[in-house]
């Protein structure tokens, strides 16, 4: 049986990644390239907030210390956050946001699909809700990768830059850390090698259609899942946690 701590830590990787990405997508609110896409990105952000809440609630329940979803979201510092480095990266231009989303969905689609067969009943239920959202997010981001890749010369260059900038943060996605390995052994999490094959296939298919190439021989950064982040996360958290930190212990 996997240790409870490993289960909690692995859930926090998913929960924190969802929340930090929602936080980033929320920054687009009111600033999108066209009103219709503003709404699309907000919808995605809302899906991610909802997902993070389910996951935090489950983690808090497993901890059994009487903490709430908000305690987990608002009262942990950078070192305790376990989100992927990819999701804390800045929005950049729309191409960066699209590529960040696409890489993540290309991982999450096979991941949550497989998680529907988890030995853990709660994760199984969360996965079966999440997979529907993820399928849509994957579709949205894939279509934009293709549009930007096969759009104008300018958009092609811009999305190429975004790929170069963000590929180094994709290695971590399918690189299991120790808490995840325990879960994989117990069939609570799916095997990451299989997920990686599917993820690569999704990326290659989309890139081929978009006339884009995935850079090889890239140095892959790691550490997010263990709490080793870029400097960016501190700013995200100080923004997000400001009220809870400045006025502790209150109802909002």
């Amino acid at each position: 049986m996997a240790s409870k701590q490993s289960l909690i830590d692995s859930i926090l990787i998913l929960a924190d990644s969802s929340l930090i990405l929602a936080q980033r997508l929320g920054e687009w609110c009111g600033h999108g390239p066209v009103l219709e896409q503003d709404m699309a990105m907000t919808n995605i952000a809302l899906d991610y907030i909802g997902r993070s809440r389910l996951l935090y609630q489950y983690a808090a329940q497993l901890q059994g210390e009487g903490k709430s979803e908000d305690d987990l979201a608002f009262l942990r510092d950078v070192g305790e956050y376990k989100n992927l480095l990819l999701v804390e990266q800045e929005n950049g231009h729309f191409g960066h946001t699209v590529i960040r989303q696409f890489f993540l969905e290309a991982f999450q689609f096979p991941f949550y699909d497989a998680l529907q067969n988890s030995q853990d009943q709660t994760l199984k239920e969360i996965a079966s809700k999440t997979i529907k959202e993820t399928a849509y997010h994957l579709k949205w981001s894939t279509e934009w990768v293709i549009r930007l890749g096969d759009g104008t010369e300018e958009s092609h260059q811009k999305i190429k830059t975004a790929i170069t900038d963000l590929v180094p943060f994709t290695g971590e996605l399918t690189q299991a850390v120790s808490c995840e390995k325990e879960l994989i052994d117990q069939n609570i999490f799916p095997d990451y090698d299989e997920i990686k094959r599917k993820m690569d296939a999704l990326i290659n298919t989309a890139f081929k259609q978009a006339g884009l190439e995935l850079p090889t021989q890239v140095y892959m950064h790691q550490g997010g899942k263990k709490g080793l982040h870029s400097e960016l996360l501190g700013y995200i958290l100080s923004d997000m946690q400001f009220l809870q930190r400045a006025y502790p212990g209150l109802e909002w």
Partner: peptide, 11 residues
Amino acid sequence: AQMAIENARDV
């Protein structure tokens, strides 16, 4: 048209 369908979904 494809984008129109997706935008309609969100709008």
